[in-house]
């Protein structure tokens, strides 16, 4: 581009001369001695192509970066949104489990399950030792056949949350001995046999 003005005067004679422009340089050769040559300073001041490239590329990079940033940001929004919904679901899971745990650990359920397993409440059987002189203050007594309370006898202290579905859920999770244990066969049915004293033999493995 910088040499273009130098050729322009040379083109005029080309029209007059119908020769093929295979060797035009030979005819314009004599004119070249008056060509204006840029000084070193001028040449240095001329805009260089590298700057243009840097500017364009820089602009491109900035645009790309902005685009990527915006993609990343919106991707983050989707991630936040998905994590939030995951958190919500987990919170619901936790609440559901806590809710059923609280019901299952209610005294009514524990007492009923224990009675069903053939346990009796022996609230006066504990013994007492005095360590200082080794004396026995109260001898322990084994549990009898009757329980202090009979939680399976009647639903006296009611809990409507203890539905058969809830207790069934619990029974399914308990690793109950398979066959031959009469206590487990009547889970939740308020078996009178258990309360009146026929303690089933444990199914020892």
């Amino acid at each position: 581009m910088s040499s273009l003005p130098a050729y322009l005067p040379a083109r005029a004679p080309r029209e007059a001369q119908p020769t093929r422009h295979v060797e035009p340089n030979r005819h314009i050769e004599p004119n070249r001695h008056i060509e204006i040559v840029a000084t070193r300073v001028q040449r240095r001041r001329r805009p260089r192509i590298v700057y243009a490239i840097v500017a364009v590329v820089g602009l491109f990079v900035i645009l790309m970066a902005q685009l990527l940033l915006s993609i990343a940001l919106s991707d983050g929004a989707y991630q936040i949104s998905s994590l939030q919904s995951q958190q919500k679901n987990l919170a619901r899971d936790k609440q559901t489990l806590t809710e059923s745990l609280n019901v299952l650990q209610s005294p009514q359920n524990l007492a009923a399950q224990a009675t069903t397993l053939g346990m009796v409440m022996n609230n006066s059987g504990s013994g007492w030792l005095r360590l200082s002189d080794g004396s026995v203050l109260k001898s322990p007594t084994a549990a009898g056949t009757s329980s202090a309370t009979d939680p399976n006898g009647q639903a006296l202290v009611t809990n409507v949350l203890l539905t058969p579905a809830v207790t069934a859920q619990q029974d399914a999770r308990m690793s109950t001995p398979a066959a031959g244990n009469p206590a487990t066969a009547t889970a939740g049915s308020g078996n009178a046999d258990v309360a009146s004293g026929s303690i089933p033999a444990p199914n020892t493995h």
Binding site: N102, V103, P107, Q108, V157, T158, N159, V160, L161
Partner: peptide, 8 residues
């Protein structure tokens, strides 16, 4: 509202 222990 829920009352896990029922009438206790």
């Amino acid at each position: 509202r829920t009352y896990p222990d029922g009438s206790v």
